[in-house]
Nucleic acid binder design. Structure first.
Length: 493
RNA sequence: GUCCCCAUCGUCUAGUCUGGUCCAGGACACAGGCCUUUCACGCCUGCGACAGGGGUUCAAAUCCCCUUGGGGACGCCA
């Protein structure tokens, strides 16, 4: 029987969840779902200096919002430090590692030297060759030391078959005796991470390609510890439009998951967008339901080349990657209304214009209205900005609409009240009846129906664009329409 | 500087392993058109790429080599 798949997402809590991390989490999650395996969330918080509680919460919130679920309570790497230290001790005893008494200053100097001479930057092995006597002397005088892994000498190489990149080979001579324990006794990431993966029984390490260079070192640790090695799948990185790796420091919130949440993205739409950044199916399918995506997912579909997150700073039309917006718009417009309702509600609550009747008495009307106006929207936030006139009497009038559809036609000063009277007089406020009123009036006054229609749209919704006017009138309702038309003459004052 | 990785439309990509069906397909963006009371949606059309050079082969986006370009790693960070 095949071993159960166990994967992990192991972020270091030094900031918010950004799209690179989210993408890694999503691929791991998808792989776990696809294989019926488990996903572990492991917070790598051993850098006490930079790890914060706030950041942990931010990452958890971000993952939850995206819908990425994990299978056990989050693990905290800091709880297992003793295990890492013990592992280092074993490595020391088995001769796979050694104490190095070189000081930081000496090492910095050697590194600088190597850089100057344009040679390889690599530890020279000074302490590897210390005689037992010399070691004893140094130990006796309580000199601080770090622990380095002893990389095999000779012509060999570490090699492994990456699930994405294929055969990767690194010669021993190109790997330095890397540090696994600091002089203060604390283990380093390269060790902790491997020890944790061994303990947690991780079967597949799915991580960014920036971890590729670490893999041979970790393989050496696995071997020295006598552990089975997991499979590795390195994912291509996400770069910015200048082809630099995206990072919190350089890009700010445009790469933060929470930013997209605040800007009115539907979580699944964002997942759909992110998953397409560096992964595809043979058919190049673009839109996936959750079930479809899990079904279609495969490590083989991960692209080897890095991809560009196409944010164009200062683009007046797109505040982020146009494709992300288009996918979001697609979901916003095509999902069953009931599915977007909760997100719309959240926006209303945030804006302080939520009315409990929207899910009581007015529920049907509420859903129909969302359905009516969403076709022109890209974000859930649009419902409270562009769509406020449908749900509240306090709505702004777009200056362009005012100018083009109202003020341009002096006659409306006279026509609006007439139209208001006639609409008010209607027994049946229906599409048919309202249309008759408008068209008859246009004939009577010998004006184009469009003038009345576009003027009414601007007066009733504050906007120059929107659904067909008779739908709008019905959605807004007879009383409000009449009131707004009458009030519109004040625009001419 | 050393090592590792990568290279198809502006962007995301299919096709590369298993050469011919590819004068390279899809999506987004862009341009034009249809529809129309507005704006969208939708539909149609267009623009647009195999980084360059050598091989191998009857045949190369696909295989090999070189060049160029890009990315990543080289911490007592994770």
């Amino acid at each position: 029987m095949e071993k159960e798949v166990i994967v992990r997402f192991a972020p270091s809590p030094t900031g918010y969840l950004h799209i690179g991390g989210a993408r890694t989490a999503i691929y791991n999650w998808l792989f776990a779902k696809k294989t019926g395996g488990r996903l572990i969330l492991r917070i790598e918080d051993t850098d006490a200096e930079r790890s914060t509680e706030e950041s942990i919460q931010g990452i958890v919130d971000g993952l939850k919002w995206l819908g990425v679920t994990w299978d056990e309570d989050p693990y905290f790497q800091s709880k297992f430090i003793q295990e890492h230290i013990d592992a280092a001790q074993r490595l020391l005893e088995s001769g796979h590692a050694y104490k190095c008494f070189c000081t930081k200053e000496e090492l910095d100097q050697k590194r600088e030297q190597a850089r100057k001479e344009k040679g390889a930057i690599k530890y020279d092995g000074t302490c590897r060759n210390l005689t037992p006597e010399k070691i004893a002397v140094k130990e006796k005088s309580n000199l601080p030391y770090i622990i380095r892994l002893k990389v095999p000498n000779g012509e060999g190489a570490v090699s492994f078959r990456d699930e994405v990149y294929g055969l990767i080979e690194k010669k021993y001579k190109d790997i330095e005796d890397f540090v696994i324990v600091r002089s203060n006794g604390q283990p380093l990431y390269v060790l902790s991470n491997a020890v944790d993966d061994i303990r947690d029984g991780i079967t597949h390490v799915i991580r960014g390609q920036d971890g590729l260079a670490n893999t041979p070192k970790q393989l050496l640790i696995y071997n020295a510890l006598g552990a089975d090695v997991p499979k590795f799948a390195h994912m291509s990185l996400t770069l910015d439009s200048k082809k630099a790796k995206i990072s919190k420091r350089r890009h700010g919130e445009i790469v933060a998951v929470h930013f997209y949440r605040e800007r009115g993205f539907l979580p699944w739409a964002f997942v759909n967008f992110l998953v397409l950044l560096g992964w595809s199916t043979p058919e190049s399918q673009q839109i996936f339901s959750k079930e479809e995506l899990i079904d279609a997912f495969s490590l083989k579909g991960i692209n080897k080349a890095n991809s560009v997150f196409d944010v164009r700073k200062d683009d007046p039309k797109f505040f982020t990657d146009p494709k992300a917006i288009s996918i979001n718009a697609h979901y916003l417009r095509n999902l069953p209304v009931e599915e977007i309702e909760p997100y719309v509600k959240a926006e209303f609550e945030k804006a302080g214009i939520w009315d409990p009747e929207f899910e009581g008495e007015k529920h049907n009307w509420f859903l129909n209205t969302i359905d009516l106006i969403r076709n022109r929207f890209n974000f859930t936030t649009d419902f409270v900005t562009l769509g406020s006139a449908y749900f509240s009497d306090d709505f702004p009038i777009d200056p362009k609409a005012l100018k083009k559809n109202i003020l341009k036609h002096e006659g409306l000063k006279e026509w609006f009240p007439v139209l208001a009277d006639r609409l008010e007089a209607l027994q049946d406020f229906t599409m048919e009846e309202t249309e008759n009123v408008v068209r008859d009036m246009a004939d009577e006054y010998e004006i184009k129906a469009g003038i009345l229609i576009n003027g009414a749209r601007a007066a009733v919704t504050g906007q120059a664009v929107g659904p067909g006017i008779f739908d709008v009138l019905l959605a807004v309702g007879q009383d409000r329409v009449v009131e707004r038309l009458r009030k519109a003459v004040t625009f001419f004052e």
